[in-house]
Simulated scan of single mutants.
Amino acid sequence: MSKISEVQGRVILDSRGKPTVEVKIRTDDGLEAIDSVPSGTSTSSREAALVEPSLAVANINQIIAAKLIGQEVTAQREIDQMMIALDGTANKAKLGANAILGVSLAVARAAAMASKMPLFWYLNKFFRQISASETEPKIPTPMMVMICGGQHGGNRLCIQEFLLIGKIEQGRKVWQTIKKILKKRRIDYKLGLEGAFSPDLQYDEDALDIILEAIQASGLRLNQDVRLGLDIAGNNCRMTAADICRLFEKYQLYSLEDPFAETAWSQFSQLKLELEKSGRDFLLIGDDLFATHKNLLQKGIDDQVANGIIIKANQVGTLTETMEVVALAKKAKFQGVVSHRSGETQDTFIADLAVAVAADFLKAGAPIPRERLLKYRRLKEIESEL
């Protein structure tokens, strides 16, 4: 089998023009794999710790590399555990989750090449081992951000993301229609961090009204062809349960992500009970609440605070730990949303990961900017292979 012969990190720029980490893995039989690490703007305090990208690269090249050279590239679990032990902290603060994850993902990509398998099939095989299940790969439904506010928008809107849930082509059509509406009404706008519109609107409901108008003008039907969701980002946007329920009913919303702050466990559980009274399908998602950590997800399962979870590998720091969280979520019948970050790269790993673990949704931003569109295109490529 292929053995790791070289591990090399370097600093690159993400979609925001900020430094991040890229890792190259070479094997003794001439294979080469490259992966990079995203980072978020709105983050949970429970996420694994990042270090400055230049320090992360130094840690990769001077500390991690020496331990990995000569290791079987397919020994993913052992390599991840080795890096966790090498770091020696509870939240990867010594080496940095950005250093560890970059290596972890690049190792997986190299291992897929060594196994002569598409990445999603290799990851699926690994996930079956982690979850002790017979999970088959599945194409997730895209969650595409159309309008942004909060820390992502730089405007007066409180809610961070207004999401369209449907096919990629539907998302592109609605996005283009929103653009026409904003121009026709002479509403000033810029593009936010993830390619969504950041319009000069005063109220969150104004944004929802524009999206509903765009859906109708695009010849689509709400809750038949497409669905609507919100990422409230409750750490930064404070709303009452009554206001959230009112929006849920008025706009026939399907998904609500982080409606409250990451410590508001009881508010989550109370809202879940209120949403259940509606008799409609809904998705109440924890992102900052769970931070892709098993212990936090287990608490959420025990306390019945949600029925969905955002999966972000860089919140926990290794591929193995990410898959362990997905396995626990599936066991609890939670729906999974594999997600990007606001600071992205042109890496498409999350598309393969979402298919491999049979995630219900892939959230990768607006289907327009190159670094977002590449991930949705990768879904299309995998769909043709399946």
Results as ranks from 00 to 15, higher is better:
V338R: 02
S36I: 08
D258E: 13
S278I: 06
G343N: 14
G166D: 11
R238A: 06
L86G: 04
R46G: 05
Q8E: 13
R246Q: 14
L283A: 09
T318V: 08
L86P: 07
Q304N: 13
T89H: 11
G343D: 12
A233H: 01
V326T: 04
E213H: 03
V51E: 11
V51K: 09
F361D: 09
L31G: 03
L289M: 15
P19I: 09
A329R: 07
A207R: 12
R10C: 04
Q315Y: 09
K125G: 00
N235D: 13
K173Q: 13
S269Q: 10
D303I: 04
F361G: 06
G149A: 10
N91V: 10
A48W: 03
L201T: 01
K18S: 12
K173C: 01
S266A: 14
L193A: 04
E169V: 09
A114T: 04
K190L: 06
I159E: 05
D243N: 15
F248S: 02
L95G: 01
G219T: 10
T135P: 03
I159L: 08
D302C: 02
R156K: 14
A114Y: 09
D87T: 04
L373T: 08
G308P: 09
M144C: 04
Q202R: 06
K380R: 10
D204K: 11
L319T: 09
Q315W: 06
G149T: 12
L208E: 06
Q304V: 13
A207G: 08
W175L: 05
D360W: 08
V316C: 15
T345L: 07
G171S: 08
D352I: 02
A75M: 06
T20N: 04
I350K: 02
T41Q: 12
T27F: 05
D204E: 06
I84H: 13
E72H: 15
G17M: 14
L328D: 02
N223R: 13
D303T: 08
A114N: 06
S15C: 06
C245R: 15
S218W: 01
V7K: 12
I368K: 13
W121G: 00
A354P: 00
S39K: 06
A329I: 06
K375P: 05
Y251W: 10
I285W: 07
A108L: 08
L208G: 01
S255E: 10
L95F: 02
G150H: 10
L289A: 08
I147L: 11
L119C: 01
D288M: 07
V174Y: 10
E78Y: 12
L297M: 10
D352L: 01
Y376I: 11
K190I: 12
S42I: 03
A366W: 05
L101G: 02
D281M: 07
D243A: 11
Y251V: 05
G88V: 10
T348F: 00
R109E: 08
T322L: 01
M144E: 11
A66R: 15
A351N: 05
M146C: 03
